[in-house]
C-alpha cells in the first residue's frame, strides 16, 4: 500500500522533472549578438531572411539572437559568447572584439557598403504627453528642474551616442570650446538619477517606472515606445541638431570558419542591403541607406541637421579613448547616487 503510494508520488515527481525533448534535427543555425533596441527588427528580419535562404538554397536556417547593452554584448563575445554575426550599436564595440580577441579581421568595416552600416538612426527626446516640462532642445536638459534618463555609456552603445550628441550640440553653441562642452555635459549628467545598462532598460525606467522627465533615446526606440505604450502616454521631441548614429554589422570570422557558417552569415548581412532588407529596416523605424526605400518613408523620419562622429570627434577610437575609457572624461564628470 505505502509502496504503491510511494510509486505514485515518485511518478508524479518524475513527470514534473520531465523528460527533456531532444531537438536533434541537424540544420543550419546562426547566432546574432545584437544590442538592445533591435529586438523587434531582428525578430522580423530573421523570419524574412530564413524564407529568402530557403528559397535560394533549399536549406533551413534558424537564427538565434541575444540582446543587451552594446558594450556588454561586445564584452560577452570577447568573454566567449559564440556569435556568428555581431550587429552592434557602434563601430568601436566591433573594433574592440577585433583587437581584444582577434575573432574578427581588422578590416571588417570595409567588407560591406556604407562602412558596414546597413541602416542609420539618430538620437531624439521622448517626453511625457503634453510635454509638461516644455523640453524643446538640448539646453533644456541642463535646467535644474529636469531629470534626464539615459543609459550607462560604459555598457550601452545608445548611451554613448546620447553623450556625444549632447557634446556636439554644446560645441556648436560655444564655438567649438571643449571646456565649455564638458561643462555642459557635466551639468546634463548631474540631472541623471539612474543609468540603466542598456537602452531598453532606460526606456522601461522612463515609460513604465515613470522616472525622469525626458528620455534620450534612439529614434527607433522612441517610435517603438509610442507604438507599445500609446500616444496618450509619451511623445517625441526632435532637437535642433543631433548625431548621425551608425550601427554597424560584421561577420565573426573565426567562429563562422570553425562552424562552417560563413556563407549563410555573409548573406545574412548582405541581404540587409537588399530592397526587402531595407524595407524591413524602415518598417522598424531605422533610417534605410537605400534612397529609393528612404523616399517612401520621408514622412516618417523628421529632417534635422545631423553631424557625424568623424567630423566632430575624429572617429570612434579617439572618442572612446578620450571620453569612455576608465578614468576618461565621463568618469570625471559623473557622480552617481546623490
Amino acid at each position: 500500500m505505502t509502496s504503491l503510494r510511494f510509486r505514485a508520488v515518485a511518478l508524479a515527481l518524475a513527470l514534473l522533472l520531465g523528460v527533456p525533448a531532444l531537438a536533434a534535427a541537424a540544420e543550419l543555425s546562426l547566432l546574432n549578438v545584437s544590442y538592445d533596441p533591435t529586438r523587434e527588427l531582428y525578430a522580423d528580419y530573421n523570419k524574412i531572411f530564413a524564407a529568402h535562404w530557403k528559397a535560394k538554397t533549399g536549406d533551413t536556417v534558424t537564427i538565434k539572437a541575444s540582446h543587451g547593452g552594446s558594450g556588454s554584448q561586445a564584452r560577452a563575445v570577447i568573454d566567449g559568447l559564440e556569435a556568428d554575426v555581431v550587429t552592434l550599436a557602434l563601430a568601436y564595440d566591433i573594433d574592440a572584439i577585433a583587437s581584444k580577441s582577434a575573432l574578427i579581421a581588422p578590416d571588417w568595416q570595409k567588407r560591406l557598403p556604407d562602412n558596414a552600416t546597413p541602416y542609420t538612426s539618430t538620437i531624439v527626446f521622448l517626453v511625457r504627453k503634453g510635454n509638461p516640462k516644455q523640453i524643446k532642445d538640448w539646453n533644456d536638459l541642463i535646467r535644474s528642474d529636469v531629470k534626464v534618463i539615459t543609459p550607462n555609456p560604459k555598457t550601452s552603445g545608445g548611451a554613448r551616442w546620447n553623450y556625444l550628441a549632447a557634446w556636439g550640440y554644446a560645441l556648436r553653441q560655444n564655438g567649438a570650446d571643449q571646456a565649455k562642452a564638458q561643462e555642459f555635459v557635466a551639468k546634463l549628467y548631474a540631472n541623471v538619477p539612474v543609468l540603466d545598462s542598456g537602452a531598453r532598460g532606460a526606456t522601461l525606467t522612463f515609460v513604465q517606472r515613470r522616472q525622469g522627465d525626458v528620455l534620450l533615446a534612439w529614434e527607433n526606440e522612441a517610435f517603438l515606445s509610442i507604438d507599445e505604450f500609446g500616444k496618450d502616454k509619451v511623445e517625441i521631441v526632435v532637437p535642433s541638431v543631433s548625431i548621425l548614429a551608425e550601427p554597424p554589422v560584421a561577420v565573426v570570422d573565426k567562429t563562422v570558419d570553425r562552424r562552417g557558417t560563413r556563407g549563410v552569415a555573409e548573406e545574412y548581412l548582405k541581404y540587409l542591403y537588399s530592397p526587402e532588407g531595407q524595407e524591413t529596416v524602415a518598417r522598424h523605424y531605422f533610417r534605410p541607406r537605400s534612397s529609393e526605400v528612404a523616399a517612401k518613408y520621408t514622412e516618417r523620419f523628421p529632417q534635422l541637421p545631423l553631424f557625424t562622429i568623424d567630423e566632430v570627434f575624429g572617429g570612434w577610437t579617439k572618442a572612446q579613448q578620450v571620453h569612455f575609457s576608465d578614468g576618461g572624461v565621463f568618469d570625471q564628470i559623473y557622480k552617481p547616487g546623490k
Binding site: 522533472l17 520531465g18 523528460v19 527533456p20 525533448a21 531537438a23 534558424t62
Partner: peptide
C-alpha cells in the same frame, strides 16, 4: 519556438542538477 526551447532547457537543467 523560443518558448519551447526555454521549457526544454529548464527541464534539462533540472534533470541534471536535481
Amino acid at each position: 519556438p523560443d518558448a519551447r526551447a526555454a521549457i526544454g532547457l529548464t527541464l534539462l537543467v533540472a534533470a541534471i542538477a536535481v
